[in-house]
């Protein structure tokens, strides 16, 4: 379980995050939503331990993540950021194996190799294993990096993922429809094994489909939070995004579906 306690961040005099507090349960998918500049990526960088907040605390399983040694933290949290430019010719398998680096000192064990193979197959990367990473398309590169951060969190001998958390910043932005569903579906399965998952998304419909819990950010504050059905209401979206939408319900699964109205024109203030 993760507790975010009155976290604030400043850049110069401007508040990027303003007294953010939330409790994020284990074995759940939490999605951070909000317009550009709302502070989603900054919040993610605070949660990853990369940025020390000006005020407040982030506790994971009652431990302050900013006082954890980097090598220990690497065994319990993995981070997928938005951009990876790899200029040296590493193969896809080598890149995924880098996720296991915190687990072995010199050479990977047979079990490390197995976990890499298994995760690559789950994300349909098997056929790309020997390709050079920098020759892949954007969506393929995202899948490779996702596989890398997922193998980082796997136990050597236990199937569960309790006591670990995963941060993803727009993991599916360049993926096609099938792979968006495949990847988020796989992440959802891992959450069911005890993993705490926090994802920044822009696509409200993906959020509605995969989130157990949504934090809607605007101007550095939490505007609304709760289950997708509670947060994703037409009035809330109009207030935060300045956009008129209709909210329908999926006929079979019941999660909300958000459709823009007014053909792309913003709301008059």
């Amino acid at each position: 379980m993760m507790t975010i306690d009155y976290v604030s961040c400043k850049a110069g005099n401007r508040h990027i995050l303003h007294s953010i507090s939330a409790t994020l349960g284990a074995a759940q998918v939490h999605v951070l939503l909000g317009p550009n500049g709302a502070g989603k990526s900054t919040l993610l960088r605070v949660l990853s331990g990369e940025v020390l907040p000006g005020e407040g605390l982030v506790l994971f399983n009652k431990q302050n993540i900013h006082s954890r040694p980097a090598a220990k933290l690497a065994l319990e949290r993995a981070v997928l950021t938005q951009q990876y430019a790899v200029n040296l010719p590493f193969t896809v398998r080598e890149v995924v194996m880098m996720g296991r680096y915190p687990h072995f000192s010199r050479q990977p064990s047979a079990r490390d190799q197995e976990l890499v193979t298994e995760t690559m197959q789950a994300l349909q990367l098997g056929h790309l294993a020997m390709r050079h990473f920098h020759t892949l398309s954007g969506g393929e590169q995202q899948r490779v990096q996702l596989a890398r951060v997922l193998v980082q969190l796997r136990h050597v001998d236990q199937p569960h993922l309790q006591g670990k958390y995963l941060l993803l910043d727009e993991p599916t932005a360049s993926m096609d429809l099938l792979h968006q569903q495949l990847c988020l579906g796989y992440v959802q399965q891992l959450a069911a094994k005890g993993l705490t998952v926090i994802i920044v998304l822009h696509d409200l419909n993906l959020a509605a489909q995969f989130a157990n819990n949504i934090l809607l950010l605007a101007k550095g504050r939490i505007w609304a939070s709760g289950r997708p059905g509670e947060v994703l209401q037409a009035s809330t979206i109009a207030a935060v995004y300045g956009m008129q939408v209709s909210v329908l319900l999926h006929p079979d699964y019941g999660f909300p579906i958000i459709l823009p109205m007014q053909q792309g024109l913003p709301v008059e203030e």
Binding site: S48, E50, A70, A71, K72, L73, A74, L75, R77, A78, V79, T81, Q83, Y84, A85, V86, N87, L88, F90, E94, V95, M98, G99, Y101, P102, R106, Q152
Partner: peptide
């Protein structure tokens, strides 16, 4: 050498892998 490999992913990603 192992750290240099991970460094190819970028400084932030290397730090996320626990590399000083």
């Amino acid at each position: 050498a192992k750290w240099l490999n991970a460094f190819a992913l970028g400084e932030a990603a290397a730090a996320h892998l626990g590399i000083p």
